[in-house]
Write a protein that binds this DNA or RNA. Structure first.
Lengths: 190, 190
DNA sequence: TGAAATTTGTTGGATAAACAACACTGGAGC
DNA sequence: GCTCCAGTGTTGTTTATCCAACAAATTTCA
């Protein structure tokens, strides 16, 4: 979640990572995650297979990195990464997750069960980390774990619900209706 | 001119060369060749400057490679690289050079004197090599050097003339008129 | 003009990527 | 059951790229 303090990274590793991630992204648009092999990725990325394993433990770690990176971009685009808890920010976070899941579904060829639940785990981790960051800035002595967990699951659930709707209602309307139910649990941090 | 017999090249080498060439191409669209430094190229290509010198002697060698590669593509697109001399092929060659110079002028920001004459040298070498290849397939005992030289200069001159015209006549018309003057010198190889 | 800054071309040592093996797993077909 | 095949994950070695430093040439500009 935190953008690392501008560490200078060897251009070779930046290049390799970005080649692998781009190839993976292209492949996801073509076929299902389960049918993608490490071979496929390294072939398309024009990178040696051994090099892949120097960067990622396996294709699941790759998926995790890929999804995390995309989600972080969505968050940073809305400057939600360096702020604190307010109902307004919470609303924008919910919107971000909704839009993220929607575009993910339209960009990926065959979102099957395994794929979806892997994405779910990754995104919920990201949401939880972000919320924890927000809540701890209130310097409260209250533990943030429980509220953050509840909110995380609620937010993801809402976004999942929204993004699976065939005929989606206007996002604004949807979020306005849902926001209070989540906000009530975080009231003490406002 | 000849496509090397499918040598397997280290992916890193291919990658680096292509990064450098692409960066150079982009820079040429922005500013004049004389004002482009090796620094500029390696910065844009995200490649170390020392690595540049492992591939090219200097920026003039880079320009030569770049122009040669573009021209070879133009030739291969018209399958003129694996054939012999006929007036028809000669006509297509003239057309190719005309179009190449035209697009070069429209893609490069500031075609100054030095740039133009460097391109001229590179292209004339390419034309000469191609013509020599064509003429030697006739297995004649006649030396091909003189006729190939004359034709090379004539062709480049025509294309240069054509591409500098503000209001260009139809390429077909122009070439039809010019072709006989060049072909007459190569008659003995037809 | 002359001093300062930029660019060039080169070097030696450090590191990432390529490559060619290897043993292992799991599934498909017989 | 069995073999065969495709994919996995790892290893040792070689090679390309990175990096920081350097002297020399060139450009800038006061």
């Amino acid at each position: 979640m935190l953008p690392k303090p501008k560490e200078k990274l060897d251009p070779r590793v930046k290049r390799t990572r970005s080649l692998i991630l781009q190839a993976f992204s292209d492949l996801l648009a073509e076929k299902g995650f389960e049918s993608i092999t490490v071979q496929d990725v390294t072939d398309k990325a024009q990178v040696n297979r051994a090099t892949f394993y120097a960067h990622f433990a396996d294709k699941y770690a790759l998926l995790d990195s890929f999804i995390s990176q995309l989600f972080r971009q969505e968050i940073e685009k809305r400057t939600l990464n360096a702020c604190h808890y307010t109902p307004e920010n919470l609303k924008n976070l919910i919107i971000a997750v909704c839009e993220f899941l929607s575009t993910t579904h339209s960009n990926c060829a065959q979102p099957h069960q395994q794929f979806e639940s892997l994405v779910e785990g990754t995104i919920k981790n990201q949401i939880f980390e972000l919320l924890t960051l927000w809540l701890q800035q209130t310097k409260t002595k209250i533990s943030t774990d429980i509220p953050a967990t509840v909110a995380t699951w609620a937010i993801y659930g809402l976004a999942s619900h929204y993004s699976h709707h065939k005929k989606r209602p206007a996002l604004e309307t949807f979020v306005d209706e849902a926001l209070p139910l989540v906000a009530i649990n975080l009231e003490q941090f406002a």
